[in-house]
Computed example of a mutant assay.
Amino acid sequence: MTVSHTLPASTADLLAHTGHIGLVQGISAGHFTDARRPTGCSVVLCPQGAVGGVDVRGAAPGTRETDLLHPSNLVQQVHGIVLAGGSAWGLDAAGGAVRWLEEQGAGLDIGVGRIPLVPAAVLFDVMMGDMRIRPDAAAGYAACQAAGKLRPAEGSVGAGAGAVVGKLFGHGRAMKGGIGTASFTVDGVTVGALVACNALGDVYNPYTGELLAGARQADGKALLDARQALLAGQEPRPVLAGSNTTIGVVATDARITKAQAHRLAVVAHDGLARAINPVHTMSDGDSLFALGTGQSGKQLGMMTLSTLAAEAVAVATARAILLARPMPVAGQPILPCASDLRQPGL
Rank of each mutant, 00 (worst) to 15 (best):
H5S: 06
L7V: 04
T11H: 03
L14T: 02
L15N: 01
T18D: 05
H20Q: 04
G26V: 04
G26W: 01
G30V: 00
F32P: 02
T33S: 15
R36G: 03
V43T: 08
C46M: 14
Q48F: 00
Q48V: 00
Q48G: 10
G49C: 00
A50K: 00
G52H: 08
D55Q: 03
G58H: 12
G58R: 10
A59T: 01
G62E: 09
E65R: 07
P71V: 13
N73E: 13
N73C: 07
L74Q: 12
H79W: 01
H79N: 09
L83I: 14
G85F: 13
W89R: 15
A94C: 11
G96I: 04
G96M: 05
R99I: 05
W100N: 10
W100M: 09
L101S: 08
Q104V: 02
G107A: 02
L108M: 11
I110R: 06
G113V: 01
P116Q: 01
L117K: 03
A120E: 11
A120K: 10
L123R: 09
L123M: 14
F124G: 07
D125G: 12
M127L: 11
G129H: 14
M131F: 15
R132T: 15
R132N: 14
I133H: 15
R134D: 05
A137W: 13
A138C: 10
C144W: 08
A146I: 06
A147C: 09
L150N: 09
R151M: 06
P152E: 05
P152I: 04
E154Y: 02
A163N: 10
V164Q: 07
G166K: 06
G170T: 03
M175D: 08
G177M: 12
G180S: 12
G180P: 11
T185Q: 14
V186H: 15
G188E: 09
V191D: 06
A196Y: 13
A196S: 14
C197L: 06
A199L: 00
G201H: 09
D202I: 01
D202Q: 01
P206H: 06
Y207H: 13
Y207E: 12
L211F: 10
G220L: 09
A222N: 04
L224M: 14
A226D: 02
R227W: 07
Q228F: 03
Q234D: 11
V239A: 12
G242H: 09
S243T: 13
N244Q: 09
G248T: 12
V249F: 13
A251Y: 09
H262M: 10
R263T: 10
L264T: 12
V267I: 15
A268M: 05
D270A: 13
G271W: 10
R274M: 11
A275M: 12
P278Y: 05
D286V: 12
L288F: 07
A290P: 06
L291N: 02
G294L: 08
K298A: 13
G301Y: 08
M302S: 13
M303T: 15
A316W: 10
P326K: 03
V329M: 05
G331N: 01
I334C: 06
C337P: 00
C337Y: 00
A338P: 01
D340T: 07
D340C: 09
R342N: 04
R342D: 01
G345D: 02
